[in-house]
Design a protein around this nucleic acid. Structure first.
Lengths: 187, 187
DNA sequence: CAGGTCATGTAAAGCGTTACATGATTTT
DNA sequence: AAAATCATGTAACGCTTTACATGACCTG
């Protein structure tokens, strides 16, 4: 059929973005990148090995990164570094006026949306479950904060943003619980 | 290789959930479901035609919905209705204690995270862009609110939740702008 | 009669996760 | 000696979007 809108050839894929950024922060291997993603951006931008390793090779093909083998003992290890082109591509993306991706998949909200057919107690259960979930997330974020206190401003500000919005979600779900409890069957 | 964790056969797919819910709210055709999703759950749970039509047929195969042709004039039209089994499956899902999906992809946060290599003014640009984006979303949500004022509590509470959290994001990004502007280069 | 809306669908591609496989080194 | 961690990778699948195709009906 042939349809592609032609991926601009040097356009960064979703995963490519994290990878270049992580390399700029001194992460060296696919493994290290994955570990750090799980400790930092995971809540708003995840990545799996299944994407990271192939994407690293693709980024090398287009010249944004360069690899060399650097085994630690008998353990295979491929170290990647940003090239100048890669650094430029990262900067271009960060400065781009392109509408940034913002996508949410919130099953709690979806359940609440359709909750008119279930009992009040069950409906409250949804709100409680979601409050607990966000509370757990908040606890994890605060854990990170302890370590991020003296890092660079980018991650620090991002963490603050994540904490603020998570707190807001907890409040919003708590309010929902209150509204449900207050006027059973009416509000 | 054969690996599948066996999809429990009657387990609801992500899109199946919206569809059953929408049918329970009286939406009748794939088209109508899509229109309504775009007017309501879109911000926290999207769906495209490419999923809706095939999923409707799958749901009929497993017996959760039943279809019959009901052309309007010479225009083909397939009306779907929930079966008892479908209604039960919907209720089961709504009541399920399963950890609900919650996934965010926020490119603004990712950019802020990696923004340590760009200039302050460009960094502020990210925050302003995100604030504007959420503001636009908030305006759209408030539009919906006007119409949803007298609907059933589920959608109404969900909308309120969406508005609250969007407001919080605007505040959080505004705070980020303030922090960036306040102590340039330091905080 | 043109443009919009109602209505259904498919093909291709891209994105992403999960599960598996493999093996060395390090820690308990 | 076992368990955890470091390290790399692939295959299969599933989900989702995008783009296209088709046609009837409705409104200005």
């Amino acid at each position: 059929m042939e349809a592609r809108p032609a991926p601009a050839s040097h356009e960064l894929s979703a995963t490519g973005r994290v990878i270049l950024g992580m390399l700029a922060y001194g992460k060296e291997t696919g493994y290290e990148i994955k570990q750090f993603v799980d400790k930092s951006t995971r809540f708003f931008w995840a990545a799996s090995y299944g994407q990271i390793y192939p994407e690293l090779r693709r980024l090398e093909v287009v010249g944004y990164v360069q690899s060399h083998d650097e085994p630690s003992g008998g353990r295979a290890r491929t170290v990647y570094r940003l090239t100048d082109a890669g650094r430029a591509a990262l900067g271009e993306w960060l400065r781009s006026p392109m509408e940034p991706v913002w996508e949410l998949r919130d099953e709690g909200m979806l359940r609440l949306f359709f909750s008119d057919t279930i009992a009040l107690e069950e409906r409250l259960g949804i709100a409680r479950m979601m409050r607990a979930r966000h509370q757990r997330k908040l606890d994890e974020l605060r854990q990170i904060q302890v370590f991020a206190q003296h890092g660079p401003p980018g991650p620090r500000l991002t963490l603050r943003l994540g904490i603020r919005t998570t707190e807001a979600m907890i409040e919003a779900w708590t309010e929902t619980e209150r509204l449900l409890g207050e006027a059973p069957g009416k509000e």
